[in-house]
């Protein structure tokens, strides 16, 4: 269990947490959002490994966010842990239900159907007064098992909360990637028929991936809702999904860490472009995406692997 990767992960996690105390609040909030979104990206990586790219992952993100907002508004729930679990659960259930359809689709048709589903939610939210219509509505600051911080303290509490959720998710998904179901992603992408002939249902494997990815997106959405303090229908719009896919391409599907690095780089590039070139931040993002696809087809994560491969071979890809 205590592999080198996990050890490095634990060190980075602690470092990130401690650094938070020395950063200005705006930067802490930027990191919080980056790590919350990284969970959505982690889910997309699971799917992308199997060759699936959904253009509607915002459906689950938005489900998680609205669950938090509605629970807080209608049921007066304010505990961050309860809200988080509810957000993940609702999104997971939505993913489980939509999965019966989506798991049968591939390639562009998969992308399109998932897009349609997220746009349905958008259409409903935009036109429903009781759900806040186009403006959405605010989310009150959450409590943490009775602890109710304000101002900067709330920012730090949320930052730590998000970090812990990320660490747990990274561990779990790390185990999943090495498992039979997780490792079958590449075989599914390479040759689905062969997988079926080896005696396992590809549809059910993909269904499981959809539920995991959807739950992660819901958790990310729940965290984003608490951090931003507001939800609106744009969380389900296709551009939100597009943004997540963007980060996934940027990150690459190489490892769990890629999701977090990619998301962080994305938020930094976006904020930087927004501050320095206010009229051209979309263009900057577009150019970064183009360059990534053209010159780094396996994403930022492949930089690390390339570097590692140049070192003399110490040990083959052994296991057991």
């Amino acid at each position: 269990m205590l592999s080198r990767a996990n050890l490095i992960g634990a060190v980075l996690f602690l470092a990130a947490g401690i650094i938070g105390f020395f950063l200005p609040p705006w930067l802490v909030s930027l990191l919080t959002i980056a790590f919350a979104n990284a969970l959505v990206v982690l889910g997309l990586i699971i799917l992308w490994r199997a060759g699936l790219v959904p253009f509607g992952q915002a459906l689950y993100y938005c489900s998680g966010a609205y669950t938090v907002a509605l629970l807080a508004r209608w049921a007066g729930v304010s505990d961050a842990f309860v809200l988080l679990i509810a957000g993940g659960l609702v999104a997971g259930i939505v993913a489980f239900l939509t999965g019966f359809l989506l798991a049968r689709y591939r390639e562009i048709f998969f992308a399109m159907l998932s897009l349609a589903m997220s746009m349905i939610l958008y259409g409903v939210l935009v036109k429903t007064e009781t759900l806040g219509s186009t403006d959405g509505f605010g989310v009150d600051p959450p409590h943490f098992l009775g602890y109710a911080p304000h101002g900067d303290a709330l920012g730090f509490a949320l930052y730590w909360f998000v970090l812990v959720v990320c660490a747990i998710s990274a561990l779990v998904i790390g185990v999943y990637f090495k498992s039979v179901a997780g490792a079958l992603a590449v075989p599914i992408r390479d040759n689905e028929i062969r997988v079926e002939f080896l005696g396992i249902s590809v549809t059910r494997l993909i269904h499981m991936k959809l539920v995991i990815a959807g739950t992660l997106a819901g958790v990310g959405g729940a965290l984003a809702a608490m951090t931003i303090g507001h939800v609106d229908p744009n969380m389900s719009y296709w551009t939100t999904s597009g943004g997540f896919v963007f980060v996934t391409i940027l990150a690459g599907a190489g490892s769990v860490a890629a999701a977090f690095v990619g998301s962080l780089v994305f938020e930094i590039v976006r904020s930087f472009a927004f501050a320095v070139l206010p009229g051209f931040w979309q263009m900057t993002l577009g150019i970064v995406l183009l360059l990534t696809i053209l010159f780094l087809p396996e994403g930022l994560g492949s930089l690390a692997t390339r570097f590692r491969r140049r070192k003399p071979d110490t040990k083959p890809v052994a296991t057991s």
Partner: peptide, 18 residues
């Protein structure tokens, strides 16, 4: 195919600012 969609998405982002 999906990668090419993303390329056109990148172009779309660029053109928005153009």
């Amino acid at each position: 195919e999906v990668i090419v969609v993303l390329v056109t998405y990148a172009v779309f982002l660029i053109l928005e600012d153009v």
